[in-house]
Structures are given as C-alpha cells and as structure tokens.
Design a protein around this nucleic acid. Structure first.
Lengths: 221, 221
DNA sequence: CACACTTTTGATAAACTTAAGATAATCCTA
DNA sequence: TAGGATTATCTTAAGTTTATCAAAAGTGTG
C-alpha cells in the first residue's frame, strides 16, 4: 500500500482526490496548506507527494524545496495551464512530474502509479524477484522455485534488467544499450536469441517474460 | 535541424531574422503576409512559427488562429510595445510566447531554442486521455474505463497522434506522415482501415473519434 | 430525389516479426 | 594456444500485423 500526501488549498479538489485515490488503493494523507505539507513530510515518509503549485502562503515549488532538504520523495505538481513553464525552469528533480488542471482522475492515478513504480524500482535492490524467480545480484545467483539455475553473464544481466524494469516494455534498443553497451553495433537479433535461452533456462517460470510485437520484451509478475 | 517559419510584412525585419537564424543553424522559411504563412503552415510542418502581430491584411493573431485549426505548432509573436496586452487576452495556447520589438537578435534565438526544447519530445505529456480512454506512452498501455485493451503498434501510434491533437482535424495525409512516415507511398485508405480497427478496440469510447467528410478524422472529449 | 463522391466494411494477400535450430566466431582459462 | 564455453549470426518456418481491394453504406448538393 503506497502512501501519498496530497496538498491543495481547495477543499473540493482535496476531497475529490482523496476519495478517488483511496478507492484505487492508495493510503492518502491530506494537507490544506504548504506549511502542513512540509511538516507532515518531515514526520512521515511518503511514496509520493502531490502539490498544488498555486496556493496562498508558501506555494508548491517552495514546499518542494523545503521537503527536498530532507527527502528525495517524488513530487507531482498540479499546475494550471501556462504554469508548466515555471515548472520547467528547474525546480524539479528528475523524479518529479506535473499534471495540468483540470485533469481526468484516471490520468492522475496513472501518473501516480508510474511515478511510484519508476522511482521505487530504481532503488537498487540487490535481491530481485518475479514469480518464483529470485535473483541475487551480489552472489550472481538465480533460483527458480528454490532450485539454483546457472546462467551465463549476458543472460544474467538481461534477466536483471528485465526484473529491475518489471512491467515496463523494453525495446531491443534499450536492452542492447544496457546489456551490450551503447557501442555495440551488431545484429539487433542477439537479444532474441538470449531471450530464447533465458526462457529455456527458466523453465515454467519463463511465462513471466512476454514479447510485445513491434516493441520489445517485458517481464511481469 | 529545426524548421522555423517567419512571417513579417517588413522586408528588412524578415531578412535580418532570416540571416541570423540561418547562421544559428535553423532552417528558415519566409512569408511576407498572413495568407502566405497560413498556406505554408498547412503544407509543411514547422517546429516553430514566428509571427508579427501587426500586419496589413490578416494579423498575427488571426494567422495563429487559422494555423491552430490544423496544428499545435508553438508560435512566437513579435509585438510592439503595448500590444502584449492583447497577447495576454488569451489568443495563446500554452505553447506560445511573445517578444517585444525591438529586440536583440540573440534574445530571439534564445527564445526560439527554449520554446522548441520545451515543446518537443521529452517534455510532452506522457499520459494522455480523452473521455474514459487513458493512454500511457511509457508503458505502451491503453485503458478504457480502467480496463486495459491491447492495440497493435500502428493502432497505438494512431491513437496517440489523435489524442495529442485532440479537437484538431487531421487529414489522412497528415496522419500518414506522422504514423507511417513521410516516405510511405501506399494507399491512403490504410488510415481508414486502422481507424476502423481502433474504433472496434475502443468499444463505446469509439464515439470520441469523429470522421469529418472530406477532411479527415478528429478525436474530441 | 438522384448523382457524385466519401467512408466503412470485410475478405484476402502481402509484409513484417519473432522463435527456433544450427553453425560460426569469439572469448576465456588452464 | 588448445579446448570448452559463450556469444553472434544466419536461415527457415510460423505467427501477427498491415496493406490492398472491391462492394456496400453513407453523405452532401443541386
């Protein structure tokens, strides 16, 4: 259950977002002004903070700056049309995003999910897993249903990459860049071959690896 | 190489801008009046359009309005002191900007670059929606009323294009250019077929896609 | 209302992608 | 550097997606 802090001065927006995000399975905390948001963010840890940019008192950007002194939590700004410009003038860290009001709630949810996934997947877990597959990056070890399997280097790196980006479709190009290096200039089809071998090695758990025609590969839970 | 269309009735200004922008690596096209600008904008795609506000015949704002019927290209207005007021009265989309004459050419280039950067590629919204349709460009995922639907590549790109240009009528030619690439030389009717499949895939939400006889297709909220 | 024109539809053919197997090249280590 | 393991390339076959075509349905105009 992901914890989200929502800060907006308008009660109607606050409550709408509250209801909708709760319904979608988030654990939501509300703040009606910037000070409260900064306070709450200092006391608890959230997976995501949603800030209205335009608020009386300290505005969203300032709240973000305050929070950033103690945390790298991703921030989603709610902006009015035309304010994106300011956003782009560098208040943001790479983790942040914005959404222009008015927005459909479904888009808000989609954004929350993708931001949270993006920046929780990246936190350098050393032991990763999907289904019955467990991958230990320190020991260079992979087990399937508890049974150790042996993978070659490339296969191991490929599997790591897929699992680190689970649910995200990776193109052959992206895979080539990360696993083979940017300077690789051979046939793109190497990836296919390695996927094939990986599938074979994973046995029944291979079903987690999906090929998406025209786009690449994904691994899913 | 970024393509810029410059429209100003004064030959001196036109040529000065032409020389300078060319020297700075832009690909510049000139128009000496509003009609020509509208015509050119309808025939080619530009990364940026620079319009003098005050021109004999149709003025810059009107040119912008015309162009906006078929494109979301960012517009930079050249205004005289005092005209900004009009600009601020809402002729602009979020993409636009203005610059007050006289201006140093270096400032013009700065503006051009920042506008083009801001509105190209990476800063585009990655999650789009129309009605109950939500499209996630990162995950290549489309949901209709929360239900995930599966689209082929072409269908996905077509839907993206439509939604990115919502409320703008796209001709088959424009669609072909963006989705199939400028070098596609097959039957124009492919578009129809793909629209058909898209409609089928979208179910009830297909009603957002309108066909405009003799013109093309639009998606509307 | 009829005509000319545009779009939709469904069927079918063509083009493209991927999987798999086999083989060649490369890398690594003893 | 020989030998085994790993990695890359190639070919073919199967499966999807995309393009084309022609008939049917729809639209707008005089």
């Amino acid at each position: 259950m992901k914890k989200v802090l929502v800060c907006d001065d308008e009660i109607k927006i606050r409550e709408t977002i509250y209801d909708y995000l709760c319904a979608k399975g988030f654990c939501v905390t509300l703040a009606e002004n910037g000070e409260k948001a900064v306070y709450l963010a200092s006391k608890q840890t959230f997976d995501l903070i949603i800030l209205d940019v335009l608020m009386p008192g300290i505005d969203g950007f300032e709240v973000c700056r305050q929070i950033r002194k103690t945390s790298q939590v991703p921030v989603l700004f709610l902006t009015a049309l035309g304010e994106e410009g300011d956003y782009l003038h560098g208040y943001s860290s790479g983790a942040d995003d914005y959404i222009v009001k008015p927005f459909p709630l479904a888009v808000l949810v989609e954004k929350c999910n993708s931001i949270i996934n993006r920046y929780s997947g990246e936190n350098m877990q050393r032991i990763l897993s999907v289904g019955e597959i467990v991958l230990n990056k320190d020991k260079f070890l992979v087990t399937v249903s508890g049974e150790e399997i042996s993978l070659t280097n490339k296969m191991f790196n490929l599997l790591s990459l897929l699992i680190e980006n689970q649910n995200i479709i990776l193109s052959r190009e992206q895979i080539l860049n990360k696993v083979w290096g940017w300077d690789y200039d051979g046939d793109e089809r190497v990836v296919d071959t390695h996927i094939k071998k990986l599938r074979k090695a994973l046995g029944k758990e291979a079903s987690h690896i999906h090929t998406v025609i025209g786009r690449g590969y994904v691994i899913k839970e």
